[in-house]
Computed example of a mutant assay.
Amino acid sequence: MICKDRVVVITGAGRGLGRAHALEFARQGARVVVNDLGVARDGTGGASAGPAEEVVAEIGRLGGQAVASPHDIATDEGAAALVATAIEAFGRLDVLVNNAGFLRDRMLVNLAEDEWDAVMRVHLKGHFLPLKHAGRHWRAESKAGRPVDARVVNTSSGAGLLGSVGQGNYSAAKAGIVGLTLVAAAELGRYGVTVNAIAPAARTRMTEEVFAQTMAAPAEGAFDAMAPENVSPLVVWLGSPESRDVTGRVFEVEGGRICVMDAFRHGPSVDRGARWDPAEIGAAVGDLLARAPAPEPVYGAG
């Protein structure tokens, strides 16, 4: 019960990782706002309240409290309404888990502008707007003298950290989420808010085709390393009071493995104290690269 009585908003919580997070937060005593539009895997099709309402019902059967949110969090009005839903239903907001997303995979030369825009909208803009409105609420609470012990957990991806062939739009959006996480952690810390990100690997609607092609199903009774429920314990801990000293970090999580990512850092450098001649750059860069670790391979690069 490490999140007892905390109020949690989770976007994209009708299925997959978001659903697993919602159920685990409820098991740990939180009251949950389940946000989901109920659209298809690629974001198309009409919105449906069904998936969110089903998760709310599951939480109710666990003895927990939850409400559904049908709001489009990639609009300013929808994101504001999402935060307002938590406050109206439960009187407060303690945790925001940004999880919503979908895929429009193409090789770069085949990627249409609308496929780029759609993925940027739901992943990157869909992180920014709820974060903005939750941050405004917590800033107001802090300035009013009310104590704030709030958490944001953003969802990046290994594709955003290392790149992924055929996912230029998704990789760029997920890399942007890491940058947004770092800025938000620096800006919101003064108000009592921590901001971290996860890069999960799990079997969901977005990944099931890839896993079906590359991984055998686990034997009966064996640990299913790709179950989305494996990711949720870290998310719940990051949403709990216990994580108050952790902020601005990115965690890779898969199965039973948790890895804190060592992102861009200042590496080897050279300073000649004057402007370089282009003819001298090759040798200098060659020396720098020889002293730097090799980059990890892009997913799917072979």
Rank of each mutant, 00 (worst) to 15 (best):
G12T: 09
G14H: 14
R19P: 01
A20W: 06
L23S: 06
F25H: 13
R27S: 10
Q28P: 02
V33G: 01
V34I: 12
D42V: 13
G50R: 11
P51C: 13
P51R: 08
A57G: 13
E58C: 10
I59R: 14
G60V: 14
G60W: 12
A66P: 08
A68G: 03
D72V: 04
I73L: 08
V83Q: 01
E88M: 04
D94A: 01
R104L: 10
R106C: 08
E115N: 12
L129C: 05
P130K: 07
P130T: 10
A134V: 11
W138H: 14
G145Q: 02
A150M: 12
A150Q: 11
V153P: 05
S156H: 05
S157Y: 10
A159H: 08
L161H: 11
G166W: 14
V178Q: 01
L180Q: 12
A185H: 00
A186L: 08
A186Q: 10
G192N: 08
N196F: 00
A197D: 01
I198C: 01
A199Y: 03
R203I: 01
T204M: 02
T207K: 05
F211I: 04
F211A: 05
F211N: 09
Q213V: 02
W237F: 15
L238R: 09
L238K: 09
S243P: 03
T247S: 15
V250D: 05
G255Q: 13
I258L: 15
V260F: 10
D262Y: 06
A263D: 07
A263P: 00
R265Y: 02
R265K: 12
S269W: 12
D271E: 10
P278M: 09
L288H: 01
P297W: 11
Y299I: 15
G300S: 15
A301P: 01
G302V: 09
